[in-house]
Structure formats: C-alpha cells, structure tokens
Nucleic acid binder design. Structure first.
Length: 915
RNA sequence: GCGAAAGUGGCGGAACUGGCAGACGCGGCAGACUUAAAAUCUGCUCCCCGUAAGGGGGUCCGGGUUCAAGUCCCGGCUUUCGCACCA
C-alpha cells in the first residue's frame, strides 16, 4: 500500500470501499471494467451521494443551534421549488438547480453559512385531474411523485439540506398558509366579492385567467365562460404603489422589473363627473389627459356598466341589449382581434361636459356604449376625445362624431413615421375637412370657458390647472389608477388549502381561531366536481358543520380552496425554520437568513408568483413578521433548455421518430422530404424530450451537471445537443487520468506515484493553475459557469501534456476548484489524495495575482488597424523599446510611408498610422 | 401595434471599460499507439486565392464616429419573449 489513504478513507465513508477492493461497487459496468482503474461515474457517484446523506454533510444549523457559528456570513440561495409532476424531472430542471448547487458549494468553501433548501409546490390541478381520471387520491399521487423527484435530485448530487424539506400539502405547512391568510383577513386585505370568473363546465372549476386561452381551458381545450361568482379576493391593489417603488432597489433583470411595472400599470390622471341630461345620475370617468376635457365630444360606457340600462332611451333598449349580449360572449382575444374595427351603440342619452356652460351646445355630448371600454379598468366609462386619442378618433370617424382639436402639436411632419413618433397618430379626410388625432404633448387650444382658460399652456401645466379647477368646483379630482387588479384568491377545487373561514346562518363570516388551525383538508371519498358550481368540499359531510361548544352557534365552513400560488408565496420563509410548530418561523431565524441572496428560476414566473410573494412579504413586513421590505434581493432567470427539431418544406415540425439522417442532411422517413434542422421547445408531440436519467446512466451525474453549465450562459436558452455530452465527459476523464493511473486495480495505486508526496511545484503548471483558480473564482462571482468550465479545461489540457510535472498540491487545489461543478468526482479524488473529511467545507484555494502576470507578452503590430506583425516583449519593457521593435517588425510594410502617429496599448498592440 | 432581449465558423458558444474576432467544446482532417478496432494522445481546422511565402474578405444588412468597432451612434431586416383597446 503506497499511501495511508485507504484506511483513512474507510473511516470517512459510511460504506467503505477502498479503491483496491475488488468487491462489488455499485455499477452498471462490465466485470472487466470493474477491475480497471478508469473513471466510472456509476461506481463513485452513488457512494458519495449516500455519504452526503448519511453523514448529514449539508445540514445547516440555525441561530441558537449548538453547532451554529455566528461569526460566518450567511448566504441564502434558493431554487424555485418544483411542482412534482408525474413525468419526473426533465433536463430543464437541473439547469438552474445545478447553478445554485455550484454556488452553494462555492460559498461553503468561501466560509459562508449556506442555506440551500428544496421542497414541493404540491397542491394543484394536475394531481387533481389525474385523481378524477384514475380514482387515485391526489395525496397518494403527490407522495409518489415527490419520492421520484427527490430520488432524481439526489442522483444529481445536489447539496440540499433535506432536513428543511417542505411540502405545501402537509397540514404542518398549510397550517401556516392559513395563518397568514388570517392575518390578511384581519387587516381587511381579504374580502368576498361577486366578480366575473372563468368557469369551465367540463372541468367543473373556475380557472385563472392564464389557464384560459381564447375562451378554452389550457388543459383539455374545453369551452369556458365568464360568470359572476362570489369569490375571495386579496387587496393587492392597496400595495400597488409600494410594489412598484420598491422594484428600484432590487438586483433583478431589467426585463422582469419592466414586466412587473407594466403589470402594475400605474397611471396618473383625474376623475371627472359628467351629469346625464335630464337625470340625477352622474357618470364618473377616469382620464390621464384632463387637459383635453374641452375636446370631449362624446362619452362611452362599457357594455357592462351598471348605468347603461338606467339611462338608455326606450327606443334603444333592444339594440343595446343585443350589443351587451354579444360583448359578453366575445372572448378577450376576440375583442382584441377586432381592435381596428370598433363597434358601439348610441344609448339615446346625452351628458353635459362640465367645462361648458349649461346653455353651450358644445357641452351636450351623446353617450354610447362600446366594448373598447373595459368595465375592469378605471370607472368603466370614458370621456372620448377623438382629437387626442386614436381609439376615440377611429370610433368618431366610424360613427361620424365631432372631432375638435384642443392640443396644438405644431406642424405635422410630412414623413409618416416621423409624424407618428411626434404624436400625430391619425389623419383622415371627412367632407373636405382634414381631421387629425394628436396624442402628444403640446399647447392647449380652444380650451376656455368663462371661468378658466388653458389656452397656451403646455400639457403638464394644463393638466395641473384643470385638475385644480375641477376639484375646486367639486366636479372631479386628481386620481392615480392601476392596471393591477385585486387578486382572485379562491378556486372550486379539492386539492388546495381550505380557507380558515366560517359562515354563520346570518351570512356573516369569521375566522377560525388560530388555536384551531390547521383546518385540515378532509379525506373525501369523492372529490370529483359536483357538476354544479359548488366546490367539491361542499360534499364533505361532517367536516362542513362546526358548532361553537360555548354558544352552541352553528357555522358552515368555507368550501372554496386557495389557489396554487398561496403555498409558494411564503415557502422561502418556512425554509428558514421548517420544524417550528409554535410559529411559521422564528424571528431569530428570519433575522439571520433573510432576505434571499439569490433566487433562480424560469422567466415564466416573472410576474405572478414574484408579485404575489412580494405582496405577502410586504404585508408580513407591516405586521413586523419579517425585517426586510423585499423577499428576493437578487433574482436570476435561467434560460430554457431547447431541443433540435425538424421542419419540412411546408414549415411543419416533424416528430423525431420520422426523421432520418443521411450524411449531413435529414429527410422525412415516409415522404422523403428534405428537412431543415431548427431549434424549438421540447415537446412530447415532437418526441424530442430529453430525460436526465438516461444521461446519468450513460455518462454520470457529473457529466450531466457540467454539460448543463457548459451549454452556454445560464440566462440564455440553448438547444440540448446529445452529441456534445461526450465532450464534457472526456474532460472529466482527463481529470481522472491526471491523478489516477490506468491499469488493473490489483496492481496500481490509487494515485500516480509522483503525487504521493509533496514536492516543488512546477512553475509553469503553477502559473496555469493560478490562472485557472482566478478565472473560476471570478466567473463564479458573476455566474459565468460556461467560461469557468472552459478555464478548467485549459488547465487540464496543460496538465495532461505535462502530467508528471504535476505536484500533489496542484492536484489537490485543482480538485477543490472542480468540486462545486463535479462534486462526486472531486470527493473521490480528494479521498484518494488521502484527505479524511469531505471537501465540502475545505476553504477555497487562493491565487496570487503575481502569478497571473506573464514575464513576456506577445503584442500585435498594426498599420492602420490591420495586424501586420507580432512582437514578443518583456512585461515591463519601455515604450521606446517596444516601438523600436514594432517598427522593425513591420519595416518592409512601412517602407516609403510616413508614420503620422504611433499608438501603444500596453501589453496589447502597437498601431502605426501611416500614409 | 407597443415594449424588451438577441443576431459571431458546419454546430454550442468566447471576446475586460473601444484594442490581435472565433477561447473552450462538438464535428471534421491528419498523425502516434494497436495485428486491427475502440479508447487515448499529438497536431491542424472562419472563408476565399496561392504549392508556399503571402494576400484579400469576414461578427444580420446599410451608413457614421474613431488611429482602432462584434463592442459606440443613426437607419433597416430577422428571431425570440412579454404586453396587447388600460382611457
């Protein structure tokens, strides 16, 4: 035995396997392979996974725990937890997970207390649909899927602290989801309201907006309809301003911030009351351009506006009702498609524009209804200013309504595009008159009455002036409106959190006392939809009725359940203190771990999940439950893993099993058509879905991890190319070979003989290693995993060429650098180097900046920016020496020319400007 | 329609803050080892002309700024994503 490593290694590993032990290592290799010292992922990965789990290597203590070290800084790195679907992991999951795992391992090596947990967002429709189809209880399906997911995650060697695992469907978890809901309820942020929702008769449930595409359910393509139902709503709009403002300080992708800003959609303006002629009713409108009030030549109410039937004249009733019915059946998309062709109906009623005197005929404006006005935004009614709004302009042209000009935008540029940019969005001829729509800023014109004149004022001043006048006269007021609407928070589903709410016989509702939480989801034998609009929980028998033991009063439980978003709104907090049975989390734990330092997930959650979670967090902040205003300080969106797909000449995608490769080109197996290779999303239909299990079986988890990171930058979407896998596998093989000799196990040592003892470091390899450490360190800080791997490849190529010059110290340091990326291989090599503890907490190797400097540098010599020669100079050479050398290097090309200017960029190039 | 991001070899991708375009990997070619193959190792590989030395072209297209542009500015094209009558 050359080294003492084997005996120590036995101490280290719970399932000791010395490298010279020919006993059956876990393997799917052949007997012959087993007797050789080659890199066999199957033989080492399971062993280390088992070791990490059994030794609890990644257990992270909390403040107050005996093994907690308060001197260390903290790092909370979180993945968006998955919905454990029946299909298991696909290769997209491990992309973000590998990145966070690399960072978690790196930060541990940098001396951080790292919180890196994982859990399950397990409530939701797919499990319930599956349950309805098969009769299997969703709890059963969910448990099975979680087990599968967890096994797959562990087979990738992720360093999660599984003692912190959470599952949103466990009563111990959703008790606290209900508890948070109770706080929202107490603050008046949860309320019941009759709102139109998407109802899908076939699925027997309401669906969220994003689950309905063109009036049909995303799952199953069943027709859906908009129906008013009594629903729980959360008053997220109350936090709109703060959700908007606090985006500024977050380290998030600009695109996500922009999407959230748009979603919240803050707009400043004014509300103005218009009196209906001959009636008491007033119609209130919202406008962002109160300065154009003098240009309002008609009004439009949304077809759903409550005043429509009140004000319309008897001769118009039928026409109006027909239009309303039509509008109701149109889907959002249909409405949008008909954008250009605006429709509407005159109600027969007129309103008074409040800026005109009672007798002024200009002030008498017709009231129309049209579906281009939405009931859900502002007041559901608008004043139409066709001279300043394209939509109003189009409508006014179609129905021949007056188009007065109230803003002077200057001369209209003759160039169409130029004009549009300046705000001249429309132009039309009508009865010989040129009508324009100007929606930009300018000077107010034709905007005066006996009391006020806006004429000559610039748009912002005119807005301020008229708003002030309106509020003085009691005709209106300044107002901020949001596109964001309150959050529809209830679902008619079984597989979700029950609301902790009771209804009494008087129709009043109250909270279930905290002490009685959780309200456990009853185990219904029949959780199928009721066929009516009653939720499945309405069939829950005894569960439904509660009697107060003191007063004897009877209550009925709320039968709606919460949406899937609920559990994911706060799971990151539970991870901080997952076992706490007295509170959702302890103050100390939150104080220490919060906020999340890095949150990685797909861009599909850019708005909803991230906005909802921010909203809850802010409520919790107001309640003193958390100490930060925002939950996720830094957010990173990983790209999508795409796949190759094949397109026929007609542009249709062809499933993989019908594609035949002939040399460089591909053809359709049946039709013989030549096919073009493109990049597309993986889909079951195209049969181009890649499965991580297959990759692990063939190449091992370390290869999969490395490939996922090497494909390209994390934020980019890249195609999965199985032909590239051997490349990174070869790299790991080379790593193995620079440390471990090849040959029969019985005859060879666990390491190359020259690595047995410390000796002087080879200076060239030492420089290469320092460069590698420096680059990997820098790239990890900036999350440039692909280039970090390239840097390691460069070192290994160098070390392969000069293998016997590699020192033990260099080998160890390289293994440490590799460890976050390929942890199994690194642990194996680490133990072969004779180390006795997992390298997970060994401190990160240093690099010396002095070692990064080359003694000599090659510089390009350019003439007029074109490279004409190269020179090699000492790093610290004088400028005059360099210029001299450079002139000589390109002497022939410079002959007969006059050098006007010499530019020297140290260490890079010399450029002669010569004529 | 509006907004954002992106466009670099046969392919995935590198390139600091304007400084030698194509790191690293795949694929391809050649060589070494081998009876042979696989594996491994070594070298070459942006395109065009040329045996070579050498020359010319080249980062979606067209202009511009600069000694120098993949990078900055103006205009356009394409792709992807998001929003889509929000008054």
């Amino acid at each position: 035995m050359l080294f003492g490593s084997n005996s120590r290694f036995q101490h280290l590993s719970p399932a000791p396997r010395s490298p010279t032990d020919a006993g059956p290592l876990p393997s799917n290799g052949t007997r012959r392979d087993m007797s050789r010292q080659t890199y066999q992922p199957a033989a080492i990965e399971g062993k280390w996974q088992q070791y990490w789990l059994q030794e609890d290597v990644f257990h992270t203590p909390n403040p107050g725990d005996p093994d907690f070290d308060p001197a260390k800084p903290k790092y909370y790195v979180l993945d968006m937890f998955p919905y454990p679907s029946g299909a298991g992991l696909h290769v997209g999951h491990p992309e973000g997970y590998t990145a966070t795992d690399i960072l978690a391992r790196y930060k541990r090596a940098r001396g951080f207390n790292v919180l890196h947990p994982m859990g399950w967002d397990a409530f939701g429709l797919p499990a319930e649909q599956y349950a309805i189809q098969t009769g299997t209880h969703p709890a059963e399906t969910t448990a099975k899927n979680i087990q599968r997911f967890k096994g797959q995650l562990n087979s990738l060697g992720f360093s999660y602290d599984w003692s912190r695992e959470v599952n949103t469907t466990e009563p111990g978890y959703y008790k606290w989801t209900q508890w948070i809901f109770a706080r929202l309820y107490e603050k008046g942020l949860a309320y019941l309201a009759e709102v139109p929702v998407w109802w899908c008769q076939e699925l027997g449930t309401v669906l969220a907006n994003e689950e309905v595409i063109d009036g049909h359910s995303e799952r199953g393509d069943h027709p859906c309809e908009r129906l008013p139902m009594r629903q729980w709503m959360l008053r997220i709009t109350e936090y709109a301003d703060r959700l908007l403002e606090d985006l500024a300080d977050l380290d998030w992708p600009d695109s996500v911030k922009a999407m959230q800003r748009e979603w919240i959609g803050r707009s400043e303006g004014a509300e103005v009351d218009f009196v209906v002629e001959g009636r008491k009713e007033k119609i209130r409108v919202f406008t962002t351009r109160p300065d154009t009030l003098f240009g309002a030549s008609y009004m439009v109410l949304s077809p759903e506006h409550p005043l429509v039937m009140e004000i319309c004249t008897p001769d118009k009733v039928e026409e109006i009702q027909n239009y309303q019915r039509e509008a109701a059946t149109k889907s959002e998309l249909q409405r949008a498609e008909l954008q250009k062709d605006k429709t509407g109906v005159f109600t027969g009623a007129f309103a008074r524009n409040p800026v005109f005197d009672d007798t002024d005929p200009q002030g008498r404006i017709p009231i129309w209804i049209a579906d281009y006005v939405l009931m859900t935004y502002g007041t559901g009614a608008i004043m139409a200013v066709p001279g300043g709004d394209e939509r109003d302009f189009d409508f006014a042209i179609k129905y021949d309504l007056p188009i007065p000009q109230v803003v002077d935008g200057g001369t209209r540029p003759t160039d169409e595009k130029e004009a549009e940019k300046k705000g001249f969005t429309r132009q039309a001829e009508r009865r010989g008159e040129t009508l324009i729509c100007f929606s930009g800023r300018g000077k107010a014109i034709h905007s005066a009455n006996s009391e006020i004149s806006l004429d000559g004022l610039e748009t912002p001043e005119a807005k301020a002036r008229i708003t002030q006048w309106l509020s003085q006269k009691g005709l209106g007021e300044a107002r901020v409106n949001f596109r964001l609407r309150d959050w529809l928070f209830s679902r008619q589903r079984y597989w979700g959190e029950p609301f902790p709410v009771l209804h009494n016989e008087k129709g009043e509702h109250s909270l279930v006392p905290d002490a009685d939480l959780p309200v456990v989801l009853p185990e219904l034998p029949d959780f199928k939809p009721t066929g009516s609009m009653e939720p499945p929980l309405s069939k829950a028998g005894d569960w439904l009725v509660v009697t107060d033991p003191d007063s004897g009063e009877r209550y009925v439980r709320e039968t709606n359940t919460m949406p899937q978003w609920a559990g994911s709104c706060w799971y990151y907090l539970r991870f901080m203190d997952p076992k706490n049975s007295d509170a959702a989390w302890s103050k100390e734990a939150e104080q220490y771990w919060g906020p999340i330092d890095l949150y990685v997930g797909g861009a599909e959650h850019a708005v909803l999940h991230l906005l909802y979670a921010r909203f809850w967090h802010k409520v919790l902040y107001d309640l003193g439950q958390v100490h930060t205003k925002e939950p996720f300080q830094k957010l990173f969106n990983q790209g999508m893993v795409l796949s190759f797909a094949y397109k026929n000449p007609a542009g249709r995608l062809v499933p993989m099993d019908l594609v035949e490769e002939k040399g460089e080109e591909c053809f359709h197996k049946e039709t013989g058509e030549k096919l073009e290779r493109i990049v597309a999303k993986m889909s079951k239909a195209l049969k181009n879905v890649q499965n991580p299990d297959d990759v692990i079986a063939e190449f091992g988890a370390d290869t999969l991890r490395l490939y996922e990171m090497f494909m390209g930058p994390l934020e980019a979407s890249c195609p999965w190319n199985p032909e590239d896998l051997p490349g990174v596998h070869r790299f790991l093989n080379r790593v193995w070979r620079i440390l471990v000799p090849d040959g029969e196990i019985a005859e060879v040592p666990a390491l190359h003989p020259w690595l047995a003892e410390e000796r002087t470091n080879d200076p060239r390899l030492e420089k290469a290693l320092h460069r590698c450490i420096a680059k990997v360190t820098e790239d990890l800080e900036s999350m440039s995993f692909n280039t970090a791997i390239a840097a390691m490849m460069v070192f290994v190529n160098e070390a392969t060429k000069r293998n016997e010059a590699l020192s033990r110290s260099q080998a160890s340091r390289f293994v440490q650098v590799l460890a976050p990326f390929a942890p199994h291989l690194a642990e194996e090599l680490w133990s072969r180097l004779g180390e006795t503890a997992s390298l997970s907490y060994v401190s990160w190797p240093r690099f010396d900046p002095a070692e990064l400097v080359e003694d000599e540098v090659e510089m390009a010599v350019q003439i007029l920016g074109k490279v004409r020669g190269k020179i090699t100079v000492a790093q610290d050479a004088d400028d005059t020496v360099i210029l001299d050398l450079a002139r000589k290097a390109v002497a022939t090309q410079l002959e007969g020319k006059q050098v006007i200017k010499e530019i020297l960029v140290p260490g890079r190039l010399v450029n002669f400007v010569a004529k």
